[in-house]
């Protein structure tokens, strides 16, 4: 487990940069917003599969709305 990508939905505008960078994890929904391909990632916590950490970091930096945050692996919630 390598942590997750937290999406702040109140900021996300569906610009699509993260879905390009993390194309194997994310796709765009009917309205352009990022959605997990595997159907997980409830409440905007998208688990980052191993090997995608760098792209996830890049997505956080490049998100034009500053809507993304990297979260360390959750202990338990």
């Amino acid at each position: 487990m390598t942590g997750s990508l937290h999406i702040d939905w109140t900021r996300c505008d569906g610009r699509g940069l993260c879905t390009e960078l993390l194309a194997t994890l994310l796709t765009r929904d009917d309205w352009g917003y990022p959605i997990s391909r595997r159907g997980d990632g409830i409440r905007g916590e998208v688990p980052i599969a191993p090997g995608h950490e760098e792209a996830a970091r890049e997505a956080v930096i490049l998100c034009p709305k500053l809507a993304l945050t990297l979260r360390p692996p959750a202990k338990s919630s």
Partner: peptide
């Protein structure tokens, strides 16, 4: 990049980068 579209076949994040 502000337009939010891919430009000249480049993906959006490439335009931004």
């Amino acid at each position: 990049s502000r337009s939010g579209r891919p430009v000249f076949g480049l993906p959006r994040f490439s335009v931004t980068l």
